[in-house]
Every structure is written in structure tokens, then in C-alpha cells.
Simulated scan of single mutants.
Amino acid sequence: MLVPAPSSGTKTMPGWKSRFHYRFNYQRFLVGTLMYLSMLSQADTVDPGQHYKMLTLTLDELLTELCISHAPTLESMIDTTQVWRRKPGQERWELPGLDISTDKRDKVLDLLEKLGLISPIGPLTRQYDYALLLGATAPGMKRRLDLLTEWWRQGVRFKRLIFLVGQRPLTPGADYLDILTKKSDQKTPDPLPFTETEAAIMLHQLVPMPEAMKALPVEFIDTPRNWRSGFWHRPNTRDTLKHWVKSGPLPGTALVISEQPHGIYQKEVVRQELPGFDIDLAAGPADPATNLPIYLDALALWLYNLKPFIPGAEQPAPSKTMIPPGRH
């Protein structure tokens, strides 16, 4: 049976509150995390692969805190959480905020921390065959590439860098390419990238990294969009993995590069789509500016993908409950 992330041995940083009370500085996080990650405990983090009862209790507490009526079984609660999912065609950055009190928000964040959606997660070993950098907005991909670069400087090694990206048209209000290129000391590309794949290619050229890392074989998995129900749907994590598998990669060890709150969901999807691979996760911390609906959407998405592997859970019929493209 597949065991959902965070896996046994994964190290997380306890206590989200201290990070939320100062202005977020990604370099400061990198330095602090890399120095202390091996010393940190995962005692307060749920490992649902072994402790479904604890997952059930935590979800029950979360749903109760948000005043959402639900049945007491894990399967039922997973179904209930799907109310938090984005609408078809809606992106994460388009989700509105949730108007709740500060005390209630703090309690919800404590529970999300316990579920493993806030703190960073570091790699468990130093040698991998692949680094799988998952697509995102251009700033998100830059943060992930910066994170991977810092891990390289700390001794983590991999043989190939795979960008799992696609033909999502870039969005000016979310991708901020003009800001990214102005910060670079290198010559700005002309014209600017139009798709997520093109942005990944640009970032690989512009982001500073050690020469040995820059010289590694790199692949950009340019996954096409899908036309369904009268709309173009951008490729999702699962789509990009399926597209890469068509090229026939040899099974091996793979380090998934993501950031919270999406890391555990994406690791679960990678595990499902790459049987025979040994999957690990390195995820940066959740941005303090992340609003609660984004956390809840990520949680619901992870639980949906986890449900088929929960003992005794009934799989929904694909024809009736298949999540629309771009949402998983």
C-alpha cells in the first residue's frame, strides 16, 4: 500500500506562529532550516499512513472548528472536505479569503500544522537519480529552484533535473515575469516567456546555481493543455507525470521539489504515477501570506488522492466523481 506523505523519518519544523510574526525572508529560512532541520522533531505531525485514527481525530477537530456538519468516519470526512475544492477553471490565487476571527484562524493553522501542510520538509538522503521540480507560477518555480540550489550547496546530489511543467499561459498578476527579470544580473530574454514551460527554461538560465549543478542534464516536460467541456484546462501534476512517463524514464530515486501547502499532495500523486520509483520530498515552508482557502483546497486535494488507499474506503465511480482536469 502506498503511504502518504509526510513519510516516517520526514523532518518538519514545529510551530508556525514564530514564522508568521515576522516578515517572511526566504534566504533566512533556507539558512535556518539547513542548519537545524536534522535536529527537529516530527512528534506533532500526523503520519496518516500509520495513524488513520489520528488523521480522523484531527479532521474532526478541523471541521468542527469551521462549523461544518460531518459524519464521524474518515471516509465521510474526506468527502465533506471536498467542499473546499476550487471550482473548475479557478486557480489558487483566485480564491477569496475566509472571514473568521483571529483566534479561530490560529486554531485552524495549528491543526493544519499538525496535518503537515505548513512547515518545511527536507530530503532524507543525499543521493538521488532525479530531482523533479514541479511547475507553478514563475515566482513559485524560482523559489523551488532556489531551494534545490541551496540543498545542492549543502551536499544533496542528483543526476538529472526534470521540470514537470506545461503549456499554461502565464498570468501577469501571478507570474510577475517583469519583476523576476529585473532582479537578474543576466540579459533579460526578449521576448518574455508566454507559457509555464518557457518560464522554467528562462529561470534555469537566469537563477544562479553552482556550475556542476548547471551542467547536469535537464529536461522540460512540456505537457499540453486539455480541451474539455468547452474550456482549455492547464496540465496538472498528474498530467505532467503521465507525459514524462511516455518518454520511458528508468525507475530510480527521485526527490520531489515543491512548497507547502502543496508538498504532501504532490508527493502522493508522484508515488501513484511512478511505481517502482523511490520517492522523497523537499518542500519549502508555506508563505505567511497564504490564505486559509488555499490551505483547505490543498488539504482536500491531498485527501481525495489519498482516499483510495485508506483501508475500507470505497472508491467513487470515476464517471460520477472524477475531479475536473487542472484540479488534481
Rank of each mutant, 00 (worst) to 15 (best):
T237V: 12
V256Q: 01
L250V: 13
V256W: 01
W244E: 04
Q266K: 14
T240E: 04
F231P: 00
T253W: 00
Y265E: 08
S258Q: 05
H262G: 04
E259T: 15
L241R: 02
S229I: 03
D239S: 08
I257M: 08
A254Y: 01
K246M: 12
W227R: 12
Q260F: 09
F231E: 12
Q260S: 12
G248C: 10
K246D: 12
P235L: 07
H262F: 14
G263N: 06
R228N: 08
P261K: 09
F231D: 10
Q266E: 15
L241Y: 03
V245M: 15
R238Y: 05
W232V: 04
S258N: 07
H233E: 09
K242M: 10
H262W: 09
R234L: 07
P251Y: 06
D239K: 04
V245P: 02
K242V: 07
P249G: 05
L255H: 03
P251N: 12
H262E: 10
N236H: 14
S258T: 09
K246E: 15
W232Q: 09
P251A: 10
G252D: 01
F231A: 13
P235W: 04
R225D: 05
L241D: 02
A254H: 01
G230E: 13
K246R: 15
P235H: 06
S247E: 12
G230Y: 09
R238E: 14
R225W: 03
D239H: 07
P235N: 08
R225S: 14
P251K: 15
P251T: 11
N236F: 07
W227K: 13
T237A: 15
R225L: 05
Y265C: 05
L241C: 08
P261A: 10
S229N: 12
Q266T: 15
D239Y: 03
T240A: 12
P249M: 06
T253L: 00
P251W: 08
L250G: 03
L255P: 00
T240M: 06
P249D: 05
Q266Y: 06
V256G: 00
I264N: 07
Q266M: 15
T240C: 09
P261N: 10
R225E: 11
Q260I: 11
S229M: 08
I257G: 00
V256A: 02
T253I: 00
Q266R: 14
L255R: 05
R228C: 05
V245F: 05
S247K: 14
T237L: 13
K246C: 07
Q260D: 11
P249Q: 07
I264V: 15
N226R: 13
G263S: 09
L250T: 15
A254P: 00
A254C: 10
H233V: 04
K242P: 00
P251C: 08
W232R: 07
Q266D: 14
N226F: 05
G248K: 11
I264Y: 02
I264M: 06
H262N: 09
S258F: 02
I264C: 06
L250A: 13
L255S: 02
W227G: 04
